[in-house]
């Protein structure tokens, strides 16, 4: 036990569940936050039985931006202090639908970007004051270059990566680590049964990578590591060639 509590936002996502377990095994306490009350209850029981960690939970909705300040106040009231936060909120959405339905496009952007920015605002301010701790944001390799197959999701993740980069720049002097995680394809409900998946990693492997990067106080990581090279190649393709590719 290290008496440090980590707030997990979007706690029912596959990566969040695995990371919560890895953090609990390291002795962190946890506060799970999400939309599905019965799932959060099951998850918190499971985590505390497995690791003996202290686990609490509360509800929030990423789209309900007005509630985020109060939400975080309530979390602090419930936990006393927070040492770190992991944001695993996100939605792949439906690219084709988003091309025809601006409401759906906005929904994707809000779930991955605007809502996350809103959530992280009070958290960043709080940690800046604490002068310690970490923020982990789950971005995506999809944010490294817009591709026709998922550029709504990709551009919202690109926004998130840039936001985290700026936040890291700001919080560095306050001794707060900001870690941008860029996973490739991960075997979660977001990708299950979808076409075109390759080099699919297990959420437990991603979790291991995240916990190691927290301990090493890293800034940006690709998980698994080889996505760094894959994306380096994809980013380096000249635009005139890229526009003729089917990606």
């Amino acid at each position: 036990m290290n008496n440090k509590t980590v707030l997990i936002l979007g706690a029912t996502s596959g990566i969040a569940k695995a990371t919560a377990q890895a953090l609990a095994a390291k002795g962190y306490g946890l506060h799970l936050a999400g939309r599905d009350k019965s799932e959060l209850e099951i998850l918190s029981q499971d985590l505390s039985i497995r690791s003996g960690a202290k686990v609490s939970y509360s509800l929030f909705d990423v789209h309900n931006v007005d509630s985020h300040q109060q939400f975080f106040k309530d979390v602090l009231a419930q936990c006393g202090t927070i040492y770190g936060a992991l944001v695993a909120v996100g939605e792949l959405g439906d690219q084709i639908l988003a091309q025809n339905d601006p409401t759906h496009a906005k929904r994707i952007i809000d779930a991955n970007f605007t809502g996350v920015v809103s959530l992280l605002t009070p958290i960043a301010n709080y940690l800046e004051e604490q002068r310690q701790g970490f923020i982990v944001g789950i971005s995506s390799v999809a944010g490294d270059r817009g591709r026709q197959s998922n550029y709504l999701y990709g551009s919202s993740k690109a926004g998130l990566s840039a936001f985290l980069s700026g936040l890291r720049n700001r919080l560095a002097k306050s001794n707060v680590q900001v870690l941008t995680v860029k996973p490739g394809f991960v075997n979660t409900k977001m990708t299950f049964g979808k076409q075109g998946m390759f080099l699919v990693a297990e959420p437990e492997d991603i979790a291991k990578g995240i916990v190691a990067a927290i301990e090493k106080r890293q800034n940006v990581i690709y998980l698994p590591w080889f996505w760094f090279w894959i994306m380096k190649i994809i980013r380096s393709i000249p635009e005139p060639i890229f526009i003729r590719m089917k990606m």
Binding site: T12, G14, D36, S38, E39, I42, K189, F192, G193
Partner: peptide, 10 residues
């Protein structure tokens, strides 16, 4: 056909 629910509801 396969499905892989992650919650009671799903």
């Amino acid at each position: 056909f396969i499905d892989r629910p992650e919650s009671r509801a799903s």
